[in-house]
């Protein structure tokens, strides 16, 4: 049936709807620049990962597919870092050269399985302007979030386009650069809460957001990780410890 071009386009469109439906219940991921680096936050099962010394990943999707992509990214970065140097491991290259073509291919081969995953990579540079926020869609599309010289160093990953837009709009209003970790954790959880609103609801009012924290977070656990810019260690990735999250949970 798909010998005809129109059928093929139709099949791809159906597949897009199917994937969007599969991703619709995903818990959002928020990435925000702060005074010492970049913070990643989400709620629920583990989906923040260390990829290499300066690269971290947050994801929405099927755990099996996330795992395959995560492993591929780690293997690519590790062998590059081993043969050349840490400085030669580049997120841009990893995404554009390696991941994107494979994901696009899997998406368009309509007899095979696509990747049910949406990925948000962050890379910490030597200065704010070098930081990179890069989203890879299930169809291989890449969305590079410019940090505007450090004015908008943030990106979000959400279950739907509408949620992502709401979160981004919220951040454009509320984000201030150079905040410390605890203030940034709060803003990240606020943003996550905005992203959890049903898509047909209007964006919750500022006062409502805090009230919704508890019910939206529910029994899920908050997980967060940071990439630290001026760490004296080569590995910049660090999971945010429970003690640092405690004030957030108490609120």
């Amino acid at each position: 049936m798909i010998e005809e071009p129109y059928r093929w386009v139709e099949a791809v469109a159906t597949r897009r709807d199917y994937i969007e439906m599969q991703l619709a219940t995903g818990s959002p991921v928020v990435a925000l620049g702060y005074s010492e680096g970049i913070l990643l936050l989400t709620v629920g099962q583990q989906k923040l990962f260390e990829i290499y010394d300066r690269i971290a990943l947050g994801a929405i999707g099927h755990p099996g597919d996330i795992e395959r992509l995560r492993m591929a990214a780690i293997e690519l970065a590790s062998s590059e870092g081993f043969t050349r140097s840490v400085a030669d491991v580049s997120l841009r290259r990893l995404a554009y050269y390696s991941l994107s073509p494979v994901m696009k291919n899997a998406f368009e081969q309509i007899y095979g399985a696509p990747f049910l995953a949406r990925l948000l990579f962050v890379e910490i540079g030597t200065s704010l302007a070098d930081d990179l926020f890069l989203e890879v869609e299930y169809d291989g599309a890449i969305n590079l979030h410019p940090s505007n010289g450090g004015n908008t160093p943030f990106a979000v990953l959400a279950a739907s386009k509408k949620s992502a837009e709401q979160m981004a709009e919220f951040l454009r209003k509320r984000f201030q650069s150079g905040k410390d970790l605890s203030a940034t954790l709060e803003l990240a959880l606020d943003t996550w809460t905005v992203g959890q609103s049903k898509t047909d609801e209007a964006m919750p009012a500022e006062d409502d957001i805090r009230r919704q924290w508890r019910e939206r977070v529910g029994s899920g656990t908050i997980s967060a990780a940071v990439l630290e810019r001026n760490s004296n260690r080569a590995v910049r990735y660090r999971a945010v410890e429970a003690s640092e999250l405690a004030p957030l949970i108490a609120k």
Binding site: Q46, F49, E50, I51, I74
Partner: peptide
């Protein structure tokens, strides 16, 4: 690299 690779892949 082995130790780091293990930590990153096996969490």
């Amino acid at each position: 690299h082995s130790f780091q690779f293990f930590r990153r892949t096996q969490l």
